[in-house]
Amino acid sequence: MIAMLSASQLADRLARDAEAVCRHYLSAGHRAGNYWIVGDVANSKGKSLYVHLSGPRAGRWTDAATSQYGDLLDLVRETCGLVDFRDVADEVRRFLSLPHPASSRRGDAHTDPPVDRPAGERARRLFRMTKPLGRSLADSYLRQRGILRAAQHQALRFHPSCFYRDLVTGRTLSYPALIAAVTDPSGAITGVHRTWLDPGGDGKAKVNDPRRALGGLLGNAVRFRFPGNAPVPVIVAGEGLESILSLAHVMPGMPMAATLTANHLSAFRLPHGCQRLYIAADADAAGRHGIEGLSRRAQALGILPLVLTPELGDFNEDLRRLGPDRLTGHLRAQLAPEDAQAFLPT
């Protein structure tokens, strides 16, 4: 019956030898005292993600840059880019050399080698499982947020039953989800962002953390209206997906990028040919940190950074509560005259 372990039991088994798990799945990292230190769940070099190796929190990990956290079962899921819990459990059994339920009945002791996929491939695997956004629950969700033309953006897709694991209870569930592709400057998918949705259409799913990212975010973003490999002289960059989509709703021709977190906003790689950078602000301290970091980098590259501020908490709140006309007027006063003329309706 050992092959029938529950999710929490599998996580406990992994935690018994947390360092071995880290050395296998996060080989780019290193041990520092009671922690394993690495860049992120994509096994990048760095020191943002740390895993407790012993004690009562053995196996628990946190990524300070993305605010992701979880146990070693979540770590296996993220590093391998797995979606279904069955695939996660199979991968853990292979690592722990536990028999598979089917093979144990046959007496077959064969185990497959561990899955080791590049971060881009893992993200593309999930994105390939999605459907067009139009007329989906995700499209309806965004329309409720005042974002009416989201289906025009190729970076946005819909997954009708996306795997979700509750980090508190260990339960594995599935919810419909809005999926956004995170891409590098060449347009290659390096990660995905998931927003789990309530199946009945009542906003986001009623879970502790309905938004999570997977894959390589550092320097990259969810991009809208980027002109391929052509120079991008003017761009808007910001954190939140819905905040940037709200700006795209009233400035449909402006290239925009959602970096998803304040730390990733600070590290965003600016496009070739950029001359003016508008940074979409949110009303929080972490957002100010990201704005300051990106502004310094832009200035060092000879790019003029300008901050766009909402009237309320963020631009989606402005769009929903104040309406598109007032949001347009508020932006017109903040844009350079030539940009207001080019990108805002007259």
Rank of each mutant, 00 (worst) to 15 (best):
G55N: 01
A280G: 01
D202S: 14
R326K: 07
A150H: 06
Y164P: 09
V236M: 04
M4G: 03
A177T: 07
A286E: 14
A89Y: 03
L197W: 04
A237L: 07
D63L: 13
A286F: 06
E242Q: 09
T183K: 09
D112I: 01
G302L: 00
N43C: 14
Q68K: 15
T259E: 08
T172L: 02
L265D: 11
N34K: 11
S266T: 11
G219C: 10
A42D: 13
G219F: 07
R321Y: 02
L126A: 08
P271T: 06
R321H: 07
S295P: 01
A138E: 07
T259N: 09
Y141C: 05
G253F: 03
A109P: 01
D84T: 05
S6W: 01
Y141R: 03
I279M: 11
L148V: 09
M4F: 10
D87W: 00
V76L: 05
G187C: 09
T328N: 04
V192F: 00
C274T: 15
I279N: 08
A138T: 09
L335C: 04
G219S: 11
F343S: 00
R171A: 14
A177N: 05
R23K: 15
K204P: 11
T261K: 07
A64N: 14
A237D: 08
V83S: 12
E292A: 15
L306Q: 14
P227C: 02
V115K: 07
L245Q: 05
V88H: 02
R332Y: 04
F315S: 02
G191T: 01
R124Q: 15
E78C: 13
G293Q: 12
H264M: 14
K45I: 15
L270I: 07
L82P: 03
A28G: 11
V207T: 10
A285S: 12
R149P: 02
L217Y: 10
R276N: 08
S97Y: 02
A15R: 07
E78S: 14
Q152A: 14
D209N: 13
R276V: 15
I179T: 09
F315Y: 06
D166L: 04
A58L: 06
L304C: 12
Q68L: 15
L82F: 07
T195N: 09
I189V: 15
G228E: 13
P337S: 04
E338P: 01
L214A: 04
P99I: 00
S104W: 03
L5F: 05
A151D: 14
R122E: 07
R16A: 13
A286I: 11
R124W: 05
P199R: 08
T111M: 07
G39Y: 11
P252W: 00
V38S: 15
R125K: 07
A188E: 14
R321Q: 12
Y175P: 13
G81V: 10
A188R: 10
R320Q: 13
S140G: 12
T172A: 09
D282Y: 03
P255Y: 01
R145G: 10
G81W: 05
T66G: 12
